[in-house]
Simulated assay, not measured.
Amino acid sequence: MYQDYPKRIKALRRSQEISQAKMAEELDISERTYRDIEHGILSPRVDLLSKIAQQLGTTASDLLR
Score class of each variant (00 low, 15 high):
54 Q>T: 09
42 L>S: 11
40 G>C: 09
32 R>N: 01
52 I>Q: 04
40 G>W: 10
37 I>F: 01
53 A>M: 13
45 R>F: 06
36 D>S: 10
39 H>W: 11
25 E>W: 01
28 D>I: 03
47 D>F: 02
25 E>M: 06
33 T>N: 06
30 S>D: 05
51 K>D: 15
36 D>N: 14
44 P>E: 06
27 L>E: 10
44 P>H: 05
43 S>I: 07
26 E>D: 10
53 A>V: 13
46 V>I: 05
29 I>Y: 04
44 P>A: 12
25 E>Y: 00
24 A>T: 03
33 T>M: 02
56 L>P: 01
53 A>I: 12
30 S>G: 03
40 G>P: 13
50 S>Q: 15
26 E>P: 01
27 L>G: 04
38 E>I: 00
37 I>T: 06
38 E>A: 04
56 L>E: 10
55 Q>M: 03
24 A>M: 05
49 L>S: 10
27 L>Y: 07
52 I>P: 00
43 S>W: 10
40 G>A: 06
48 L>W: 01
29 I>F: 01
39 H>A: 08
25 E>K: 11
56 L>N: 04
53 A>E: 04
32 R>I: 05
52 I>W: 02
39 H>N: 14
27 L>W: 12
29 I>D: 01
45 R>T: 15
36 D>T: 07
26 E>F: 00
34 Y>P: 02
50 S>K: 15
50 S>E: 15
41 I>E: 08
35 R>P: 00
43 S>T: 10
